[in-house]
Amino acid sequence: MSAASAGASVNLASRIISTLQLNRLFVIPQEWQQLFETCRKRFDDLFVGSLYFIYVKVWPVFLLRLRNAILVFYYMSETQATSYDSKIEGNIIFTRLDAALNWVRKNSLWPMPMGLACCAIELMATAASRFDIARFGAEVMRFSPRQCDVMIVAGTVTYKMALAVKRIYEQMPEPKWVIAMGACASTGGMYRSYAVLQGIDQLLPVDVYISGCPPRPEALLAGLMKLQEKISRQGAFRDQNPELAEKLEDALA
């Protein structure tokens, strides 16, 4: 299949558009970059940031940065032909768009280390060489909520700190998750006291609770893996950005 002539390009572009479906992963051959540009003009406002190429065997896969997620497209002239085609067999990865987004998200969770008490020591140990949270793609701990995906509330949340924790959570961009690490963050722990918030879930939507006082690093890693499982079941695109999904569907209609 070639895109030598301009007429064919336009034709092919219209076919690309007509076969673009949500919840599909698209792979476009290298020589179709020009066509891709044509498509791009139509969806211009959807494409934020740079275009990335990674080569899967022969064909390039286009990864588009879309907000904080990455959209992966493939092209097939006829959907039926994809059921089996010896020429492309093994070069195309079929997946749902949600699954692709979730795959990207769950393997690159950037934690916001909300270290408030002794649990933070275990959190630090989890990041260090023996346990190495980098094995799960969550090693990028920066004290900057605006680049974070998951807040790990590690320690006793006092009432004095409570609204500060909430404020930091609100500074994190969507999509975002919360891990309540340890007894104190989950329920107030042993502090049945005038000064301690009885669980951070009174202020934030908690995704994973980790028991322990403090939990061992393995427990935190297990909690992180639970969160990854949870993320992989989410309807990433439809649920979290319904306006954009509608916009895309309208553009494709």
């Binding site: 006291s193 301690v196 918030l197 009885q198």
Partner: peptide, 10 residues
């Protein structure tokens, strides 16, 4: 905007 406290269940 500063802080709040609640009664702790004992």
């Amino acid at each position: 905007d500063v802080a709040f406290t609640k009664v702790t269940p004992l």
